[in-house]
Computed example of a mutant assay.
Amino acid sequence: MPVLDLSQTSPDLTRVVCDIPSVSDDETTLADAVHAAMSGLDHLEVVRCGDTIVARTNLGRDRRVVIAGHLDTVPINGNVPTRDIEIDGEPYIWGRGTVDMKAGVAVQLKLAAELRAPRVDITWMWYDHEEVDAERNGLNRLSRERPDLFEADFAILGEPSDGEVEGGCNGTLRVAVRTHGVRAHSARAWIGENAVHMAAPVLARLAEYRPRDVEVEGLVYREGLNAVRISGGIAGNIIPDLCEVEVNYRFAPNRTVDEAVAHVRSVFAGFEVEVTDASPGARPGLDAPLAQEFLAAVGAQPRPKYGWTDVARFSALGVPAVNYGPGDPHLAHHDEERVPIAQIEAVERGLRAWLKPS
């Protein structure tokens, strides 16, 4: 089992953590290493739930913060082990997971070891299966089995945010929009009805759609409605009797899932619409007292999170949450994934400044 030396710098720890492959479904080796490292610290209570590791202080503080990060990555594509590169004179660590989100995890691991008496009680969470179906998400499982571990006044998720604070997140909805025709031999097409041709108005509505920019609690969220997949037909000589357009709607957090579904159904009125996946967004939650203290400590100007993240899980439990981690979110899942070393160090300084005893 790899050994994590938590006395290393956070950039060095990033290299080590990234060089332990942990593609979704293969997190156990890294989870074992995290569990072993945390179990050796006498100021933390450690709980393991599958490949999710929780370590928390119990100092009797009047407020508690959850700080979380996922251990898994998308598949490796020749970008492990990590290597050091330089771009325009700035040093980076290149490799799978550096952005999404092992640099953030490395910072959290180091601070968990070193902050023995923080100003608030802290529950550190490192969880599995974030990059796959929501049903398998380690936070999902943990919330069912140990809901008490989610009791907190504020939460921070170490998702890549360029070292800035991103409040809340958009919701996401996927639907299948279907058209039905009549199957026939393509040599006698006039006998059938082509379901693929009948989907043209669906694509036209998408092309004409103008998404909203929505202000929520001072942050402007950008929405989007897009076809992400289209399928139809069974053979090269058969008129297709079914066509399915998969549509993804990213909606601002002032809309509920039901309102988002109603909106999409109105856009595609006259067509069969089936909801296949839905996750609510999260309001920014920046008016919470701990959030205001956090923003002041890190000197951040908050901005919206356009993508969906697990802050929505905390928001649904009544815990205001933000995203704060090193790395450019545009490079998440990219084969040229890389994180500036200066950003790793800056996020560590920011969290340390906020959490250290006053």
Rank of each mutant, 00 (worst) to 15 (best):
R178M: 13
E131C: 11
D121A: 11
W124K: 05
T179I: 04
E130Y: 06
R178I: 08
E166V: 04
A155Q: 07
W124R: 10
G167R: 01
N140S: 14
D148E: 15
L142D: 04
A117H: 14
C169I: 04
P118S: 10
I122H: 08
E145P: 00
R144H: 15
V120G: 05
A112I: 13
D133E: 12
R136A: 09
L157H: 07
D148Y: 08
A113T: 05
E166S: 11
M125W: 06
R178S: 15
P147K: 08
E164L: 12
R119N: 10
E151V: 15
A134N: 02
P147Q: 08
A134L: 14
A155P: 11
R144Q: 15
W126M: 14
F154V: 01
G138V: 07
D153T: 03
T172V: 15
D128L: 05
L157M: 09
E114P: 01
H129T: 06
E166P: 00
G138C: 03
V165W: 02
R141H: 09
P160N: 13
E159S: 02
D162V: 02
R178L: 12
G158H: 08
A155K: 03
L149H: 00
D121I: 10
D148A: 11
G181F: 05
D162S: 15
P118A: 11
D133F: 09
L142A: 06
D162F: 06
R116A: 15
G158S: 14
L149Q: 00
A112Q: 13
L149R: 00
L139S: 02
A152G: 07
P160E: 08
I156L: 14
A176R: 02
V120C: 06
G163H: 09
T179R: 02
R119E: 07
D148P: 10
W126H: 14
E164F: 04
E130L: 06
S161P: 04
G168F: 12
R144A: 14
E164T: 12
T172L: 04
D153R: 07
T179N: 07
